[in-house]
């Protein structure tokens, strides 16, 4: 059986802007990435990258995105990701930068990596706790999270753990 080979980019969006979390959506990321590919590699690059290009997953709270493109042209996409400096959504520009965490061939490997990554982030969070109350709050929010819908994946469960603990810190 022949199948199309893809590459999945698991990226972390780093931003200092406080309103950033509420304002990003998949479409904004999609447009930003396409613009930067067009700027770096011109029309040819954009045409190559836009075959099967899509934003598969976006978590606004932790700033994690999963991008897909064809394997043949993934170098074009990857080499233009570092040149992203702004994210535009709803006519506002947010300063941000992309950090590639993992490049995988399937979504499954990316999911595994993300679970591992988020578990580490939780440990970092717990290590940085100053008081016992903080720690308890994180523990409580981790325990209280549950599946909302049946179609949610395991990784999203992990995500929500992390994001809630993030919220409780603030």
């Amino acid at each position: 059986m022949v199948r199309f080979k893809n590459r999945y980019f698991l990226c972390e969006i780093i931003s200092e802007d406080l309103h950033f979390q509420q304002s990003i959506d998949e479409w904004a990321v999609h447009n930003t990435v396409k613009n930067v590919v067009a700027r770096m590699h011109g029309d040819f690059g954009l045409a190559c990258c836009s075959i099967a290009f899509s934003v598969k997953y976006l978590n606004a709270y932790t700033g994690i995105v999963l991008l897909r493109c064809r394997k043949d042209f993934h170098r074009l996409l990857w080499s233009s990701l570092p040149f992203i400096t702004h994210l535009e959504s709803r006519n506002e520009r947010y300063r941000c930068s992309f950090n590639t965490l993992h490049v995988g061939a399937t979504m499954r490997t990316c999911q595994k990596f993300l679970i591992h990554h988020n578990r580490n982030q939780l440990l970092v969070l717990l290590r940085n706790c100053t008081s016992e109350a903080d720690r308890q709050a994180i523990q409580k929010s981790v325990q209280s999270c549950k599946f909302v819908g049946e179609e949610q994946y395991n990784s999203e469960d992990e995500e929500s753990k992390d994001e809630e603990s993030d919220d409780s810190m603030k």
Binding site: I14, S15, E16, R75, W78, S79, L81, P82, T85, R95, C96, S97, F98, N99, T100, L101, V103
Partner: peptide, 17 residues
Amino acid sequence: KPLQLRGPYDVANLGWL
């Protein structure tokens, strides 16, 4: 600025350019 820094794997990939 901190936002101008890029991750090591991204920088290695810039080497491709």
